[in-house]
Design a protein around this nucleic acid. Structure first.
Lengths: 226, 226
DNA sequence: TGTTAAAGTGTGAGCGACCGCTCACCCCAC
DNA sequence: GTGGGGTGAGCGGTCGCTCACACTTTAACA
């Protein structure tokens, strides 16, 4: 599973062509899903013959996986950039939320591809990709959550890992809710048809929600009760 | 889309057979997904001929949809039961979490089918099912969140709908994390390989997370600072 | 009550469309 | 003349779905 997913010929090909193939793949796979996308059509749209496609890739799945890795690295580059500055945790959360809102319109294809792997159930692939993809997010979050904890920006009575998990779960769902058809619809059921015209409100409410969860511990309840 | 999804013959069939067909369908669709499940094999496993299957259903998709509705009504029956008592909101949340943990092992098939619709992108179906499925959850949550707000169990400075959305997002992700392959793996990446042996810890940490988010408003920060 | 036709239940071989993938072939560079 | 880039007709397998046929039940009528 850690092996390369293309043949040497693809690495030798012109960067322009490599890009065309990957972008066309991302287009089709994100639009139709892995099963329904047709590799013959991807080849045609990318301007190469199906024969050449199979000089570049062993199988349709390998092409898919390379598209996936492209999409993932694109998504992570954005996250990485947001997390580079050493803002306070809530500022970072805010930046992440706004980025999610922006990128949904801009390049929903990457998010849709990410959503695709959510459906995987082939054991080896699942393990490999979960480790690879979620591992990166986890490292990023774990790092700044730990610092935030040390600096007293977040409560110290919570398990860091579960905390990161809940945090990411909210952001991941939000990302899908701005991008993937079913999640978009669900978002509207919960928050009204005009929720997509109220980005600012979503930011503020989620920050409120997170701020409290971040900040307050059970002992604070007692302090307040006095 | 609001039409029935089986022919009259299926309604006339013996309940025992109807059940066998639906259960076999749920088995196969949840295990393999809609695309990879084979309706000829479902017929065989259910003990009827493929010809009869098509006397019961117009298309493979109709069979799928009926299986889906069966799964959904099963899931909702459980939620409904949990929410029937008039416990405080945190007690309810706890019950929901524990139910999710239990049902994951017990009948993961229903959750997996629910996860399947997450992938839908056919416009009409998406709208219909999001309204139908998420609508029910939303009604349930909205109702008890409103009461909790009136009774002062949760803060009053948050938008109820977004609040319900965040709440359900956490629970939904948790549900998938106990059931669907990729989400399970992701759960372990974040929380360690032994997270599935620590149900109690998950309950407690999520309740802590929720309690703060439920209870504290920004003005409380200032009170505490004094 | 026996006869018959219509309507319903049930079968499974196989059609036809689709699609992942191969392979025989062409072209050009060195 | 060998090796790599490039082609696309078409093979082979799968699978949704049909249809001709067999059997059973219902019901209408003499």
């Amino acid at each position: 599973m850690e092996t390369k997913h293309c043949k040497p010929a693809f690495e030798r090909a012109e960067p322009e062509r490599r890009n065309k193939v990957l972008q066309t793949g991302i287009d089709e796979f994100s639009r139709l899903g892995f099963e329904n996308a047709n590799i013959n059509i991807i080849a045609k749209k990318a301007g190469i013959s199906i024969g050449l496609m199979y000089k570049y890739f062993e199988t349709k799945e390998d092409l898919f996986i390379l598209c996936l890795e492209e999409a993932i690295s694109e998504l992570h580059a954005v996250i990485e950039e947001v997390l580079q500055s050493d803002d306070k945790i809530l500022v970072r959360a805010e930046k992440l939320i706004r980025t999610i809102q922006k990128s949904s319109g801009q390049d929903s294809r990457y998010v849709k591809l990410y959503n695709e792997i959510t459906k995987m159930s082939d054991e080896k692939n699942v393990r490999y990709y979960a480790d690879k993809i979620e591992g990166i997010s986890y490292e990023a979050y774990a790092g700044f959550l730990k610092r935030a904890k040390e600096e007293g920006d977040i409560r110290d009575d919570m398990d860091e890992r579960l905390f990161a998990f809940f945090f990411d779960s909210l952001l991941m769902t939000l990302q899908f809710s701005y991008t993937c058809d079913y999640y978009r619809e669900r978002f509207q059921v919960y928050c009204g048809d005009d929720i997509f015209d109220n980005d600012e409100k979503v930011v503020q409410e989620l920050l409120k929600f997170l701020e409290s969860a971040f900040t307050f511990s059970h002992t604070d309840v007692k302090k307040l009760e006095k």
